[in-house]
């Protein structure tokens, strides 16, 4: 994957007092034994979330390792999506939602008052459950972000960002000859990959995915899973999924949420072969409830 022609959003330099230090995406840290050392990209500490009087999350402590996939699993209403939405401050838009505690990206507090939320969301992109392309052409769907953030100097550069984003999202081959046709005309799986291309066009560091495959058939799902596996070379991914096999297939770390509590977080292999908590065991073996 060629990242040379990408302008990281942060490389433009954040205005003073924004609370986020521009961090160049560094090389992978490989130690002497050739084993990748993990750096923590994002971390939550003692995170409480309230919707009005109702508390949805209780004291969550979770680290998201850089350039790996973290899966959040748990029954409906367990708080996993709430947690995901805290990571790029999507909860700000919900009335009565209050977030307490600490969430950091590269050590910087994302709830810092001086922080520009729009800027934050170029660093932390999001893909939703239902593919939601803009009612525009395929090209414009992908070009939209780089355009409004001024990531391209000229049309040529913009073209390059669009094609390489589509390429990375595994969609270019299928749409190369019809970039001007509407994004909404694509199949569900293609639309979802278009949304992923749109998310990566602004060179985010983290991609949040909220059940990205639940509206797709198994083949389209397999394409997205393969894509997730490729994307983790360059991006940090956090994915919420109801499909435990999917969590097992795509993630390196899995966190199990239950009733607003983070019950257990461990390597995916460990969680699915010998989880340490009875509740995790009950949920993943289908004995829950």
């Amino acid at each position: 994957m060629n990242m040379d022609n990408y302008i990281p959003a942060t490389a433009k330099g954040a205005p003073a007092g924004m609370g986020i230090d521009p961090v160049a995406t560094g090389e992978k840290n490989i130690n002497m034994d050739g084993i990748e050392e993990t750096t923590i990209k994002m971390s939550a500490r003692n995170l409480d979330v309230f919707y009005g009087d109702k508390q949805a999350l209780f004291g969550i402590d979770l680290d998201v390792p850089e350039r790996s996939v973290t899966a959040l699993i748990g029954p409906s209403g367990c708080g996993k999506s709430t947690f995901l939405r805290c990571l790029n401050r999507m909860n700000d838009t919900i009335d009565g939602c209050r977030v307490e505690g600490d969430i950091r990206i590269d050590q910087s507090d994302i709830y810092d008052r001086a922080l520009d939320v729009v800027e934050l969301r170029t660093r932390i992109g999001m893909v939703f459950q239902k593919p939601n392309p803009f009612p525009k052409s395929i090209y414009d769907n992908v070009a939209y972000g780089p355009k409004i953030h001024g990531l391209a100097q000229d049309r040529e550069e913009l073209d390059h960002i669009v094609t390489s984003s589509l390429e990375k999202a595994g969609l270019l081959k299928e749409v190369a000859d019809r970039l001007e046709s509407p994004g909404t005309g694509l199949s569900g799986g293609q639309q979802q990959r278009l949304c992923i291309a749109r998310a990566i066009a602004v060179s985010p560091e983290v991609i949040l995915m909220d059940e990205p495959c639940s509206a797709l058939d198994p083949i389209a799902t397999a394409h997205i899973e393969e894509l997730i596996d490729e994307l983790r070379e360059n991006f940090t991914i956090v994915i919420v999924t109801h499909n435990m096999q999917q969590a097992a297939r795509v993630s390196q770390q899995t966190a199990f949420f239950h009733l607003g509590i983070l019950v257990e977080c461990n390597s995916t292999g460990e969680i699915f072969t010998s989880p340490s908590d009875e509740r995790t065991q009950g949920y993943i073996t289908g004995r829950y409830g």
Binding site: A248, S274, P275, Q281, T285
Partner: peptide
């Protein structure tokens, strides 16, 4: 069944 955890073991 795609057994997991204890069931897989």
């Amino acid at each position: 069944r795609q057994p997991m955890a204890m069931d897989l073991r």
